[in-house]
């Protein structure tokens, strides 16, 4: 050990030590069956990550400066509503998902790039311990994935859209905190104003596709089965080694990724909707507006008080958004602004 490591060793925080009095008895763990006959009952945790593997690059690009005018700062989150829209409402989650499958038939599968534009929002707790408050941070992200055999690079274009206190009470606490225009979260600086656009070129295989607990390649996605049962089997085999948790929940999360952000054939998306339709725990949440005000219908999977929701436009089977809620609190969202193939070239800068 050199001096630097020794210095770190002697700075070890006491917070790493557990309070031994509250240590659970190992018998509570050994009460579970040793062999994975049934997957263990739900354990307390938030929604599993359909992690955007590119997020690190995104954040780095956005920290740099605040150049745009504060007037463009997005307002606090809208809430979903129960308003009805023109399309007849499905009676069950299953009906919605099967209808979405029926509608998912064609899109142009030709183009040099698969391009997806996403707005992400996330709620962060900031401020003094005595009066913390929540802010909503928004990030815009564009992903370009080359489709062909050519050795073209992919690209990720990111732009920080700024952050705002979430509600009136948060606004008050923010003012009491001295109305800061930036917040620090560890090594990340979050600014109230947005940031400049950042482009990160990525090798074709490295734009961060993720499915069912592990990275996935374009080639694997292209070979996915378009039969719902076969797709389910493929995902379960993968989840068995890559993830732990109730199978239905993991399938729901994987299904969300397939219908929202992964470049798969329409037939595979349709199969995904059909697979989701057969998951017993998926509930119909009802007619909602996504965070961009687009009308759709939400289905949700509730786990320990947190619900992950998928918002679908029943009329054309298009997945609009996914959201993560804890009770009445929106924790995060992704709005899928546009998805599809293009012959345009990604921006270089």
């Amino acid at each position: 050990m050199n001096d630097l490591i020794r210095m770190v060793a002697s700075s070890r925080p006491a917070r790493l030590d557990e309070n031994e009095d509250t240590r659970p008895d190992p018998a509570s763990i050994m009460a579970h069956p040793q062999r994975p006959v049934a997957r263990p009952a739900s354990r307390r945790r938030l929604v599993a990550a359909t992690a955007l593997a590119v997020a690190g690059a995104v954040i780095v690009g956005g920290v740099a400066a605040r150049t745009n005018e504060p007037g463009s700062t997005p307002s606090a989150t809208g809430t979903t509503t129960g308003t009805r829209t023109g399309t007849p409402a499905p009676a069950t989650a299953r009906a919605l998902l099967l209808a979405a499958a029926e509608q998912t038939t064609q899109d142009s599968s030709n183009g040099r790039y698969w391009r997806i534009v996403i707005e992400q929002g996330e709620r962060l707790e900031v401020g003094p311990a005595s009066r913390p408050y929540a802010i909503l941070r928004k990030i815009s992200e564009e992903r370009w994935l080359p489709t062909g055999q050519q050795a073209a690079a992919g690209a990720v274009v990111a732009r920080m859209l700024g952050a705002r206190p979430v509600g009136a009470a948060d606004e008050e606490a923010w003012k009491a905190d001295g109305s800061p225009r930036q917040w620090r979260q560890g090594d990340v600086v979050i600014t109230m104003a947005g940031g400049p656009r950042g482009v990160k070129m990525a090798p074709a295989g490295a734009v961060g596709l993720w499915l069912a607990g592990a990275p996935v390649t374009m080639k694997q996605l292209a070979a996915l089965p378009s039969d719902p049962a076969a797709l389910r089997k493929w995902l379960l085999a993968r989840l068995d080694t890559a993830a732990e948790g109730p199978a239905d929940y993991l399938l729901f999360v994987a299904g969300q990724a397939l219908v929202t952000e992964l470049p798969v054939r329409p037939a595979v998306r349709a199969a995904t909707y059909r697979m989701l339709a057969d998951l017993p725990e998926v509930r119909l949440f009802g007619a909602v507006l996504d965070q961009h005000g687009r009308a759709g219908t939400a289905v949700g999977y509730l786990r320990n008080g947190s619900e992950t929701r998928l918002i679908v436009d029943g009329a054309d089977g298009q997945a609009l958004a996914q959201e993560s809620w804890h009770g009445d609190t929106l924790l995060s969202y992704q709005v899928f602004e546009s998805t599809g193939y293009t012959n345009e070239a990604p921006p270089m800068r």
Binding site: R45, A48, A49, A51, E122, L124, Q185, A243, G245, S324
Partner: peptide, 17 residues
């Protein structure tokens, strides 16, 4: 990596640091 939503973990970790 598999189970903790990244943003929730980042917030918790930031508070920890």
């Amino acid at each position: 990596r598999e189970r903790y939503r990244d943003e929730a973990r980042q917030a918790s970790l930031a508070a920890e640091l």
